[in-house]
């Protein structure tokens, strides 16, 4: 079985965000944002609604061009590249609102293998042995990833028939199918129930440990952030207001102000975080 090699064993390069600003017709969505995702860590980006988290992701995956600043992955500069070029460098993402394509889970996961496969129009139309072989090998790997993310039983099910939590996980699995070095997760557990959240958290921790990739996580679920993240960057109105380990951030007065509008002292901080936990 000549299954395509899984992610390279070497540690992924660091993802550096330097002074990124994004302006939409007068609105400064991101203002001089900088942070570094250390290789192999889980880096959470949190903040209230409208803080610029998703904009930040759209810059990282190439959907937006920043007005200023650069994003680098190792030696490669991502800010001038088209999304599909960034994907081939090993940056995969999921979306806040589920963006799956039609067809079965397998079809979606195989889309994730697109950048790693070669078969073109001619080879596929004529079903040349090379194209057939390639497809078979990638299908085997996609199935492995489906098993890894708990979708093994749904591999041939149309995505539209799956429950919400599973569909969300299809996106995660599809991103993993890219064998990414950096995985961008935009609210991976939003709208999920407790069991589904725990399951997804488990999957994220598992794939990170097993595949050694860096994870950038945007999430409102503070419990998940505190459990998974090694580092946290807090955005508010497009600016970085705090940065540090989950514990440091939890106590940061700026964070409390951003989340609650007022707030002084640690007591409120704990309440705030617990509140987020509960939602």
């Amino acid at each position: 079985m000549s299954a395509p090699a899984p992610a390279p064993a070497a540690a992924p390069p660091a993802l550096e965000v330097r002074g990124v600003s994004v302006r939409f017709a007068g609105l400064l969505a991101l203002d001089d944002v900088s942070f570094t995702v250390a290789p192999g860590t889980v880096h959470a980006v949190i903040g209230p609604n409208g803080a610029g988290k998703s904009t930040c992701f759209n810059v990282l995956s190439g959907l937006y061009r920043p007005t200023a600043g650069t994003v680098r992955l190792g030696a490669a500069r991502l800010t001038r590249l088209a999304p599909h070029r960034i994907a081939t460098l090993g940056v995969a993402r999921t979306f806040q609102n589920i963006v799956t394509t039609g067809g079965t889970v397998a079809d979606n996961l195989m889309l994730g293998r697109h950048a790693l496969s070669r078969a073109g129009f001619t080879a596929t139309a004529l079903r040349l042995p090379s194209a057939v072989r390639e497809q078979r090998a990638h299908l085997a790997r996609a199935r492995e990833i489906a098993e890894l993310t708990g979708l093994g039983n749904h591999f041939d099910t149309p995505v539209t028939l799956l429950p919400y939590g599973d569909r969300k996980r299809v996106e995660l699995a599809r991103a993993l199918c890219l064998e990414p070095r950096v995985l961008l997760l935009d609210e991976p557990v939003a709208g999920m129930n407790a069991a589904e959240r725990a399951r997804t958290a488990e999957v994220v921790r598992d794939v990170r440990a097993r595949l050694g990739l860096s994870v950038v996580l945007v999430e409102h679920d503070m419990g998940l952030v505190m459990r998974l993240a090694d580092e946290v960057t807090v955005l508010d109105f497009g600016r970085v207001v705090a940065h540090g380990t989950p514990d440091e951030v939890r106590r940061d007065p700026e964070v409390l102000r951003a989340y609650l509008g007022t707030g002084t002292g640690t007591a409120t901080a704990t309440t705030a975080v617990t509140k987020e936990d509960a939602t």
Binding site: A87, A115, L178
Partner: peptide, 9 residues
Amino acid sequence: TAASVMGVH
């Protein structure tokens, strides 16, 4: 969007 971030030109 999904297609392009999955590497489709």
